[in-house]
Simulated assay, not measured.
Amino acid sequence: MNVLVVDDAAFMREILKDILSESGFHVVAEGCNGVEAVTLYKRLKPDLVTLDITMPEMDGIEALAAIRRHDPHANVIMCSAMGQKRLVIDAIQAGARDFLVKPFNKNRVEEAIKKVMCV
């Protein structure tokens, strides 16, 4: 399964890429803001996107909405250091399939992917 990882923090992308690789997933690309997320999604059409909420240029909720307008069936898991109820609700209402809170837990990441992708 091809995964696009988008987060403005390079170390967070590395952590998530390591978890995904160890779990047998292929990271096809990574981005550092919402604009890159939308561009890379349209170009690569990954099976799954992990998308940070708080990013420069275009935040994750806006990027999620743009991706879902392009592909209503896009599988997106939102990520945030702020596990606030309002952000979770906003993300789900915008079309996110699940929500991960940083720091990432390998078992929770795998659980979210299995839930979203029915693997």
Rank of each mutant, 00 (worst) to 15 (best):
I77V: 15
A81N: 11
A37F: 03
S80T: 15
N2Y: 03
A96I: 06
E110L: 15
E57C: 03
M55L: 11
V88T: 04
F104E: 03
N107R: 10
T39K: 14
V109G: 05
I113Q: 07
V49M: 06
P46C: 01
V119Y: 09
R108Y: 02
D90C: 00
L20H: 09
L64F: 02
E22K: 13
K114I: 10
V109K: 05
A81S: 15
C79D: 00
V28A: 07
V38L: 11
V28R: 01
D8C: 07
V101R: 07
Q93N: 15
M58K: 15
E14G: 08
C32M: 13
A10T: 11
G34N: 08
K85W: 05
G83F: 05
G34W: 07
E22R: 13
D47M: 01
T54W: 09
L20R: 07
V88W: 03
R97D: 12
H73A: 15
A37P: 06
E57T: 02
S21C: 00
H70D: 14
A94Q: 13
V119F: 10
I53K: 03
V35Y: 06
L40W: 03
S80L: 10
Q84N: 09
C32E: 15
F104I: 01
V35Q: 12
Y41K: 02
R97I: 09
P56M: 04
D8K: 04
N105W: 00
L48G: 02
T50M: 01
N105R: 12
A66F: 06
V27T: 10
E36V: 02
E110S: 11
I89M: 11
T39Y: 06
V101A: 09
Y41I: 03
T39W: 00
V3N: 06
R43A: 14
G95W: 04
L87A: 00
T54Q: 14
S21M: 04
D18R: 12
L51V: 06
A91L: 07
D8F: 05
K115S: 14
V109W: 04
F99E: 09
V76E: 03
L4M: 04
M82A: 07
V38N: 02
N105A: 08
V38E: 02
V88Q: 11
L51N: 05
V3F: 04
R108E: 13
F25L: 08
M58Y: 05
C118K: 13
A29D: 15
D71H: 09
N75A: 04
G34C: 09
K106R: 14
E57V: 08
R68F: 07
I113S: 06
V27G: 01
R68S: 07
A10P: 08
G34K: 08
D71P: 08
M55G: 11
S23R: 02
G34H: 08
L48D: 01
D8V: 07
M117V: 10
R43D: 12
V35N: 10
K17G: 12
F99P: 08
N105V: 14
D59F: 05
S80C: 10
F99R: 09
A74C: 08
H26K: 10
D59T: 05
M12V: 15
M58F: 06
S23T: 05
T50D: 01
R13N: 07
E111K: 13
V116C: 08
L87E: 03
K45T: 14
M55D: 10
